[in-house]
Amino acid sequence: MSSQAIFVLFNGLASGMAFFLVAAGLTWVFGILKILNLAHGAFFMLGAYIAFTVGGGWPASIWSFLGVALIAAAAIGVLGYLTDQLVLKRLRDVDYHYALIATFGLMLFCEGAAKFIWGTDYQAVMPPPEVDRAVVVGGSYISVYTLFVIGIGVSVFAALEIIMHRTWAGKIMRAVSNDPWMAGTLGINVPMVLMVSVIASFALAGFAGGILVPNQALSPHVGASFVLYAFMAVVIGGLGSIRGTFLACILLGLVESANATFLSQYGGIAIYVVLAIFLVWKPTGLFPAQGAT
C-alpha cells in the first residue's frame, strides 16, 4: 500500500470517528423523538467549553482528559434534562416545523450564552501528553491523538450497539421509537424513556466536545464545523440508525480524506457528490427506519 493510501486510510478513519462522536447523539434523539435537533452542535460546543474550563489547555494525563470529557458529558446531560423539560417536551405533539424553529432558536441562545460567558477570543486545548506525538507509518505522519479518536469512536459505537441490541433498556428504547403508543399500552413509562434518551444524546454531544476539543480552535462557532458532517452522516446512514450513521461517517471520512489528498484543487466537493448520490440512490439511507419512505 502506498504512503498516500495509508495516510488517506488513517486520516479518513480519524475524521469519520470524529464525525460519528458528534452524529451519534444527533441520530439517537431523532430516532426516538423524531426531532432533528439543530442545536446539537451548540451543545457539542458547550461541552468543549466546559472541558476547557474544567481541564484547562494542557491536560495532565490521558486519564484526566477522559475524566474531564465525562464531566462535560454529565454537565451537558443535565442541560439536556432542562432542555427537555423546557423545550423538547412541548414539541412532541406539534408539527416538526416548530421543532426545527425551536431548536434553531436554542442554538442561537447557546452561542450567545457562550459568547457572554467565555468571550469571543479563540482558545486552544492540547492533546494529553500520552497521545501528543506522531508515528510515521509508511512515510506518512500520523498523529497518535487521531488514533486515540479512532479508538474512542469505535468504543462508543460498540457501547451503543450493546446497549441498543443486547440490553433490556435498549430494547425498550427501540420499542418506544417504533411505536410509542403500543409501548405505553404494554406498561412502559414512555415519557421516562424519552427523557432518558434526550439526556443520553445530549451527554454524547458533551462527551464529543470534550474529546475533540484538541483538534480545533475553541470558539462559539466550533460546533458548526462538525455538525454539518454529522447531519450528512445521519441522512446517509438512515435517520435514527446508529449503525447506519457509523458506516456513513466512515464513508464520509474516507471520501473527505481522499478528496484532500488526491484532488486538493477541488477541496470539499467530493463529500457533497457522495451525499447527492445517496439522496438519489437511497433517499431513506443505508438503514432506513421502519416505514420510512
Binding site: V125, I142, S143
Partner: peptide
C-alpha cells in the same frame, strides 16, 4: 490558523 497549529504541533 489556530486549528492548524494545534494539529501541526503534535506531529512535530
Amino acid at each position: 490558523q489556530i486549528s492548524f497549529f494545534q494539529q501541526a504541533r503534535s506531529v512535530g
